[in-house]
Nucleic acid binder design. Structure first.
Length: 361
DNA sequence: CGCGGCTGCGCC
DNA sequence: GTTCAGG
DNA sequence: CCTGAACGCGCAGCCGCG
């Protein structure tokens, strides 16, 4: 028997074609689950990511730095079909992407181009199409995190809930799939909050009116102002502080005042959630785009810090001194937060029951 | 060597 | 983040 | 009822030109 060369990328391409061909959710799940079960374990993660149009996991700060213009050049004047008889494999593709992402500094544009040309040069027409869609993050095959998550559960014979929870902590569906298939429910259950690594945030849901919300929450609910800012999570362990955006990007360097604040919090380790807002000299809120000028900045942070100060509002505490509060009731987390930080950083807030909707708490 | 342009990317 | 269409 | 898809703007970094 010849040495195992790995699953041809063409098979993954074929899977995406079949996923696109059906609109049935259950059918998609079945197709993906079968595929994941059948391929070698080390191909599971890249296959999952590529199928949902991601090159790298969300919690991974790597990026391809490739878009339309570069791809167009890489596709170039129709390159000749590959001479090599060996088919492109899933792992080949993963390695190529890693190489592209690793390119930086001068000549990096050319390096990326070369790698892409080589990759696309080895790809058949169908494979090219999948590669392009994956690079743009737009697979359009009706499979996104949701369906993939359920498919992973199917493949591993575990509950979608278990997969979802592990995903929250890992921020990497590929890795989640790997764990699920290798170690099943126990492996997933072993995943927990890792301080200094980003956690997938819980999202707010829209309600039509307050009465509906109250009903949903059993008569009492908590209200917060909604700021036109950016949601962040603040991790601290000892002297180390990391700040992540909603999409799990590390923005620590851009928000020194948040880091400074975190160091003043009287605890050794914690995970806070909040919103940063751009303000003017008088502390009045500025438009969102002003905030953006701060957010992705790497140079002259100190200068801009004076021009556009940030104001921090906290609304949740997920971890404190070695203990995860994620399964604790909101009421309890809020109480712990109130004890931990000064009142000024708490988003002014109304705890409301029934008709007392305008009374401040 | 500096500056403007192009390209990619991330937030609401 | 919000809205919309489609299953 | 749910999920997937669509929508725009400013900054950073490299490239290329003068």
């Amino acid at each position: 028997m010849p040495p195992e060369a790995g699953t041809p990328f063409a098979e993954l391409a074929d899977l995406t074609r079949r996923l696109e061909a059906t609109t049935k959710r259950l059918e998609k799940r079945r197709l993906i689950a079968e595929f994941l079960r059948r391929i070698p374990r080390d191909e599971v993660a890249p296959a999952v990511l590529i199928a949902i149009g991601r090159i790298f996991p969300e919690a991974d700060q790597k990026a391809l730095n490739v878009g339309w213009a570069t791809l167009e050049k890489a596709l170039g004047p129709t390159r000749q079909a590959r001479l090599d008889a060996r088919p492109l494999t899933i792992l080949d593709v993963q390695r190529a992407f890693e190489g592209v992402a690793a390119a930086s500094g001068s000549e990096s544009v050319r390096a990326r181009l070369r790698l892409l040309q080589s990759l696309l040069g080895q790809a058949s027409r169908e494979e090219k199409e999948v590669l392009l869609k994956s690079i743009f993050g737009e697979m359009r095959i009706g499979v996104n995190e949701g369906v993939m998550l359920e498919a992973i559960a199917d493949a591993a014979g575990v509950s979608p809930e278990a997969v979802r929870t592990a995903h929250m902590f890992l921020g990497d569906l590929g890795r989640v799939a790997e764990v699920a298939l290798s170690d099943g429910a126990a492996g997933l259950a072993a995943q927990s909050l890792r301080l200094l690594s980003p956690v997938k945030p819980m999202m707010a849901e829209l309600g039509d009116d307050l009465d509906e919300v109250l009903k949903e929450h059993g008569g009492t609910t908590a209200l917060e102002f909604k700021f036109d800012g950016a949601r962040i999570q603040i991790h601290r362990r000892g002297d180390e502080v990391r700040v992540f955006s909603r999409r799990l990007t590390d923005v620590t360097e851009s928000v020194p005042e948040v880091v400074e604040f975190a160091r003043t919090v009287p605890a050794e380790s914690f995970l806070l959630e909040g919103e940063v807002v751009a303000v003017d000299g008088l502390g009045r809120p500025r438009p969102f785009q002003e905030l953006m000028r701060r957010f992705r900045r790497v140079h002259e942070i100190e200068a801009l810090r004076r021009e556009i100060p940030l104001k921090l509002y906290l609304f949740d505490l997920l971890y404190l001194e070695g203990r995860s509060l994620m399964s604790a009731p909101y009421r309890e987390r809020w109480a712990a937060l109130e004890r931990l930080v000064p009142r000024e950083v708490l988003a002014k807030r109304l705890v409301t029951s029934s008709r007392e909707r305008s009374r401040r708490s």
